[in-house]
Computed example of a mutant assay.
Amino acid sequence: MQSEVKGYFLTPDGQVKKGIASISEGKIVRCEFDIDSNQAEREDEGVIVPGFIDVHVHGGGGSDVMDATPEALDKISATHGAKGTTAWLATTVTQSTMNTDRAIDAVVAYMKSDRNGKAGAQVVGIHLEGPFLNPKLRGAHREDFVCLPDKAQFIQWCERAEGTIKMITLAPELEGAEELIREAVRRGIVVSAGHSDATWADMEKATALGVSHVTHLFNAMRPLHHREPGIIAYTLQHSALTADIIVDGIHLHRGIVDLALANKGADKLLLITDAMRAACIGDGEYGIDGFQVTVRNGEARIHDGTLAGSLLTLDEAFRRMVQLHDVSMADASRMASTNPAKLLQLEAIRGSVAEGMKADLVCLRRDGAVSWTMVNGRFVYRSPE
């Protein structure tokens, strides 16, 4: 059965045009666009953009990936789907091998089931954040489970995951990282440097081995220094590396976001949430992976003041880039949709509004709020307003 979506679309050429997208079996089968000629009507109807893709999500709506249940994954999918995310990587935290196994098993089963994408955003893979992190820069990851890179353990997780691991964050300067990076690259898994004390020389070696991305740039990594520029300067200077940023106004100063934009450009940056359990819930006390997390005024912190993820959603990240950083809607869409699709090698089916692409669409009102979200041609969210 074929359906149609009419309105103002952000097209692949970066323009907003009035048009019609015909949808069949979850895909866009035909697009017809005209040049936008009615600004007032456009602002009233909103703009339809490609669905957001978040490569770093731990939780939301009171649930966490490490809960390892289909109900938790439904809740996270629905929570972020209501905020414009149509695809996401279920992201683990550093936990015991047994708990990581449980989380992987739960995600694999969920991705095989017909639940995936029904409640909201579709899980498109797993992101292992840890446990191969630098203990000095572990953030809110458990010190007792952080460890050196272990190729055998990584292979065991890859086999358990049946090809669903799409990304791993590790500290490339650690002993054993070289072998693990080679193995991940051989399997087509994105290797991202993060929670790292890597020097400039460490990053030169890491990128030669296949590290291609950097996790939450500036956060949980060696700070910039004029005699040892380290991972931050290396990332800003090398166009081959992409990086993601958390633009919640807490993790990064506005000037630092502008610095990243000036040096990397919109083509090399991704917007992520790093959202934790309390996203879209609010202030309170939360038990997360062995930590007591206090959420107050939009900030999630453990007992020593360390940030424990964020409460950010991608609609807010998109809105902040446009309204606070003078980024065009087209560039914000690149960072929220197109670039993540490219990173995960999904650009043939996701990340733009065009024929042959999945019908993953989001309608944004004039104020940047989500009017509706569509996943695989189905409306998974409609604003009550």
Rank of each mutant, 00 (worst) to 15 (best):
H141Y: 06
L148A: 11
Q39F: 13
G60V: 10
A40C: 08
N38M: 11
V146H: 01
F132G: 07
T94S: 14
T97G: 12
L148R: 09
I104M: 09
D101L: 07
M98H: 13
A78Q: 08
D105G: 15
E41A: 13
V65Q: 00
D54I: 04
F132R: 01
K118G: 01
S96M: 10
L73K: 03
G120D: 00
N116D: 04
T100I: 15
F52N: 02
K75F: 00
S37V: 13
L89V: 06
N134K: 05
Q156P: 07
V108S: 06
Q95R: 12
R42G: 11
A119L: 03
A140N: 01
A152E: 14
K83W: 09
G130H: 10
A103Y: 04
D36Q: 15
D36G: 12
E45C: 13
H56C: 07
Q39K: 15
R102T: 05
V146Y: 02
L89D: 01
M66Q: 07
I104V: 15
G139K: 05
G61V: 02
D105E: 14
M66R: 02
V65H: 00
T86V: 01
R138F: 05
Q153F: 12
Y110S: 01
H80N: 07
Q95N: 13
L133V: 09
I104Y: 08
R30S: 15
E45H: 12
V146I: 10
V57S: 05
H58C: 11
V65D: 00
D64Y: 03
H127I: 09
Q95C: 11
H141F: 09
K136R: 12
E32R: 13
K75G: 02
V93D: 01
L128S: 13
H56S: 06
N134L: 05
L128Q: 13
I28A: 07
I48C: 03
I35M: 14
E71T: 08
E32V: 12
D44Y: 13
F145T: 15
I35E: 15
A140V: 05
G117N: 07
A90M: 09
A106C: 14
A72D: 05
S77K: 00
I48P: 03
M98V: 14
C31H: 11
A109L: 06
T91N: 08
S77W: 00
